[in-house]
Nucleic acid binder design. Structure first.
Length: 201
DNA sequence: CTGCAATTCCGAGATGATCA
DNA sequence: TGATCATCTCGGAATTGCAG
């Protein structure tokens, strides 16, 4: 019977709740994200509000069965519940002042989404190349993969010996280990929105 | 003495009512 | 609305009884 396999081992009442993977705190944050009261969630899950309260306070360690019932009140599965970043103060939205210029700005501008990419799987940038801008004869090459979409203007992109003129609306995707070079040979600035993984800046 | 089933005890989760 | 409390329920551990 899964009912007897407790999420937190040992004496939940006496020992520190850090043994458990933050069940209570996670449940409370998830519930608030969805804007449910304890009673509302209890009704959706088919348990009592007292149970929700006790779980959130980590005064009980719910069985697998009852935790699953509670999670049925949300569109989330057990794995996501235990692994999702529910930190309430994580940054989601970025204004222009939150973008970090990492290429000097003239003639090439790379505005990095977020000033700190540590812990991220994706690096995203707003790139701008003035007419004549060139990443240089010395080809770029680094580990990872990158892709981008030309928003305006045009870009001559060389990847692994292959060259192509990309215009607004066109895009690229390549293994960053291949030698590559970006050149704006057009008459207007070229704007690209790009992504790279893992982050290289 | 050993092995097994039945019974009892106890701890912890869940409930429903109530409080602040 | 969230927290608390008395009570209920359930399952594991311990104990008991009995046959072989």
């Amino acid at each position: 019977m899964d009912k007897d396999f407790r999420i937190a081992h040992g004496q939940a009442h006496q020992e520190t709740p850090t043994q458990a993977p933050d069940i209570g705190r996670r449940l409370r944050e998830l519930r608030k994200m969805y804007g449910f009261s304890q009673r509302e969630l209890a009704k959706r899950a088919g348990v009592t509000n007292g149970t929700i309260s006790l779980i959130e306070q980590e005064r009980i360690s719910p069985s697998i069965g009852s935790l699953k019932k509670v999670l049925d009140g949300f569109p989330i599965n057990m794995t996501d519940f235990l692994t999702l970043d529910l930190t309430p103060n994580r940054k989601v939205f970025y204004g222009e002042k939150d973008m970090k210029e990492i290429a000097g700005g003239d003639p090439i501008s790379f505005k990095l989404l977020g000033k700190d990419t540590r812990g991220r799987a994706i690096q995203m940038m707003h790139e701008s190349y003035k007419p004549g801008a060139d990443t240089g004869e010395e080809m770029l090459a680094h580990s990872g993969e990158e892709c981008g979409i030309v928003i305006s203007g045009e870009m001559v992109l060389t990847v692994g010996g292959e060259t192509r003129l990309l215009q607004a609306g066109e895009a690229y995707y390549f293994d960053s280990r291949l030698p590559h070079r970006f050149r704006n040979l057009g008459k207007t600035s070229c704007v690209i929105v790009s992504a790279c993984t893992p982050p290289s800046f």
